[in-house]
Amino acid sequence: MAEHTKSKFNPSCHQEIITMQNITFSYEQKQVITDLNFSIKERDFVGLIGSNGAGKTTLLRMIVGLLKPEHGSISLFGEPIGKFKHWERIGYVPQKNSFNPLFPVTVREVILSGLYGRSKLFSRISKADLVKAEDAMHAMQIEDLSNKRIGQLSGGQQQRVFLARALINNPALLILDEPTVGIDVETQEGFFHMIKHMHQHHNITFLMVSHDMDMVRSYLGQEPLQQNGKLKFYVKHSHELENCVENDLTHSLKGLRQSMNQRAPVVI
């Protein structure tokens, strides 16, 4: 299964990961997105910026199939979204406030849930799954929190847990929905450093919704590449990076922590 999906992704860094064509969407009478054309290529880093009501979350929900565009089409990894089956290639980090802090669930249980997709519908959690969870926790430096209840953690630690959950499947595309909301500035910087590092050293394509202009601009440039209504797209293209790299689970997760530690310690 894994071999099959891997072979479909060529390492030339030119595959279109997300293709949006003539997308229009409106709530009631208010048109939020009008005739949007945008594509994200392999290993691009796209920052999606906009004020409240600009349609950031709407667009994100359309890309992951939770909303249908009124007009236009969306393709994921070259396949129309209706036929797309390889959801395990997409890692998703929700907004921090999307769960109840009282929810009785441990860090390990949350991280394992990243594996619960269509292909695992009738199978049990295997030893290999548990190893993957350990690797993901190790990469995010949260292994000592594995049996803690998620609500007991700080905002920054929770964000790492959700990032670990998104990484457990070795995703080719990572979607982050305002990952730094409600986290103090120092932790935000550590988190952003980690994200940048992953982009530079691992073959992951990023789509990040953010309201934090400073951080986005410092990495993705001062001017948006494209604008649609109040939505602004800031992009760092893959060709600005050194070269294409392998997207290998064991390498990326195990190597992640090592290479991050070498560069600069991450502040939790």
Binding site: E88, Y92, Y116, R118
Partner: peptide, 23 residues
């Protein structure tokens, strides 16, 4: 018992369940 994992994810994070491709 059959769908313990899926019911958990749906309960904890419905959006993530949908993004993972669960029905």
């Amino acid at each position: 018992k059959l769908h313990f994992k899926e019911l958990f994810l749906l309960t904890f994070d419905e959006d993530a369940a949908a993004v993972n491709g669960l029905p």
